[in-house]
């Protein structure tokens, strides 16, 4: 009886060992599959009223209530590949932009305050800032009158204006440059959605990425002057003239210096 049972146990051991190993390997593979799929794609924007990104993950419980109450299916919950932590709400402007509902149902639905209820005027939202990144492809930059981003902007002539500049290529025409005003732009993404190019020339970026930040120590002379009501410095400061050593270069009759290569 014992001799008959022993080989059976061995086979059982071997099979269960192989099964265990397969499970272990599969487990590792399943876990690695999550980060492996992570890839940088389109910019994932937060819903209106989203608190500062650093604090957002202390508040958002990833319940999806904002997504459910979005009437335009703009909002989605992130998957690993979407560039935001899994389960957090985001939208992709090129896919479905924010329609800027006046009652902001997504913010109303948020049970945690990850979307700040003090946002009651959708025009004050800061989901991102549109940036005209494709300055070599934008049709308006090329001198055509596409104007689509400007036309679709819910805050036309405030968030996007058309600024007239000289067309250097033709020498006699004008170009109308769509110009985003960061203080007005809500980042709804209508412009990015509507851009007629194959890849949008105007893109909404998170505010922190889109707008440069001046160093905290920077002071703008003209602003300081206005604040003080007068120039902050009395008279003119005479800085020392720094001249190249050796004999002074020869001046040319048309201006500039001989043998000077900038």
């Amino acid at each position: 009886m014992e001799s008959r049972q022993a080989p059976a146990m061995t086979r059982r051991h071997m099979l269960s060992g192989a099964f265990r190993a397969a499970c272990g390997a599969g487990l590792v593979a399943a876990l690695l599959a999550v980060p492996a799929r992570r890839r940088a794609e389109a910019v994932a924007l937060r819903p209106p009223g989203a608190i500062d990104d650093a604090e957002f993950l202390s508040a958002c419980v990833r319940c999806g209530l904002c997504v459910r109450d979005c009437p335009y299916n703009t909002l989605k919950l992130a998957e690993a590949a979407d560039g935001q932590p899994v389960g957090t709400p985001f939208f992709n402007a090129r896919t479905v932009p924010c329609e800027m509902c006046e009652d902001i149902p997504c913010v109303v639905a948020c049970p945690t305050g990850a979307l700040d209820k003090s946002l009651t005027d959708i025009k004050a939202a800061k989901m991102g800032v549109a940036v005209l990144v494709g300055q070599e492809t934008c049709l308006n930059f090329l001198g055509l009158r596409c104007d689509v981003c400007y036309r679709v902007c819910p805050l036309i002539d405030q968030a996007i204006t058309l600024e007239r500049h000289h067309n250097e290529r033709t020498g006699k025409h004008a170009v109308f440059i769509p110009t985003v005003h960061t203080d007005k732009c809500t980042g709804c993404g209508k412009c990015e959605k509507a851009c007629v190019l194959e890849e949008a020339a105007i893109k909404v970026l998170p505010p922190a990425l889109a707008v440069g930040v001046l160093g905290a120590h920077y002071r703008l002379g003209w602003e300081e002057k206005e604040k003080a009501g007068k120039s902050l410095i009395d008279g003119i400061i005479d800085l020392p003239d720094r001249m190249p050593e050796g004999p002074a270069p020869e001046r040319l009759p048309g201006g500039g210096f001989k043998e000077f290569k900038p």
């Binding site: 604090e55 993950l57 202390s58 508040a59 419980v61 948020c110 049970p111 945690t112 305050g113 209820k117």
Partner: peptide
Amino acid sequence: SLLAGHVMETSG
């Protein structure tokens, strides 16, 4: 969330 320094909305 509380330990992370965030106080939820009343409904939460």
